[in-house]
Design a binder for these strands. Structure first.
Ligand code: MN
Ligand code: MN
Ligand code: ZN
Ligand code: ZN
Lengths: 144, 144
DNA sequence: CAATAATTGAAATTGATTATCATGTTCTCT
DNA sequence: AGAGAACATGATAATCAATTTCAATTATTG
């Protein structure tokens, strides 16, 4: 569990940045959170265990976590707020989103990823990242 | 070409909305535009042929065009402004985006779309729409 | 033409995110 | 441990696309 904090600290040291109480607080709460969380929500959550940490610092720490490859920002349609989740290259996934109830299912489809590579190659591109979201109705919402 | 204007007018009539000079101006210029255009850019373009049309009305008309199924809004990563393009269910496509020079290539891959359907079904979802964007380097930017 | 409801555009507002800046903290070197 | 340099913090202000407000104008219906 503290491996990720160690990863962050290594990243900070490499960049000549500093390890602070606030950064560790934000990172710890973030790493203990599953699923998708907005900066604002994370700020609330952090404030419970570590009052006094500012929202600005939460934004800044999330940006650092992204740069360090430890967090990924998602921006689902119609949501004006971005959400963050733990990043782990081994656990890459895409999303299925119910447009009625907001339910989100994560999935991985290696065959699609392979075809994406092929399409890109066909146009002379090398893929660095991709975004795929499927929007529709979940089974509960369809029958309701 | 005026078929699309007719489509819009039909949509407006059905909804009890009104056909106005401004809406026709915005729609006409939009339909004459290929590729992706922001509300702001469209506003500039409209202003040349039909001065006096407000930016607010451009935003409002684009929203109507989306509702009528005649326009689609895209929100590519790193762009803070949304862009719009003509919608045509027969000509659905996804995007390849160069993260260095911004070049955008449109493509269609039926096999991927089929797999998307299958993944959704496997989770009990019915797909209404999807978003797929591949980010990477185009051939020019890779060799440079 | 008159009545009604919708539309318009300027200006104000919103809401998420980022920039500023004075003050506080961390790290490095002695 | 102490000093100094660089970085971090957080309250506040700024940004910026997009939406809301509202009084004045216009389209539609009969
Ligand atoms: Mn996820
Ligand atoms: Mn396109
Ligand atoms: Zn649902
Ligand atoms: Zn390029």
């Amino acid at each position: 569990m503290n491996k990720k904090i160690a990863d962050l600290n290594r990243y900070l040291a490499d960049k000549g940045l500093k390890i602070t109480r606030q950064r560790e607080a934000v990172a710890q709460v973030f790493f203990d959170t599953d699923g998708h969380i907005s900066a604002e929500e994370l700020y609330i959550k952090v404030s419970r265990s570590y009052p006094g940490v500012g929202l600005t610092t939460v934004y800044r720490t999330l940006k650092l976590l992204k740069e360090a490859g430890l967090a990924k920002e998602r921006r689902f349609a119609e949501d004006s707020q971005g959400v963050f989740e733990k990043e782990d290259t081994a656990r890459h996934h895409d999303h299925l989103i119910c447009t009625r109830c907001g339910k989100i299912i994560e999935f991985k489809e290696p065959l699609i990823e392979k075809l994406q590579e092929e399409v890109a190659q066909k146009h002379g591109f090398s893929v660095e990242d991709h975004k795929m979201e499927l929007y529709g109705l979940c089974s509960s919402c369809r029958t309701a």
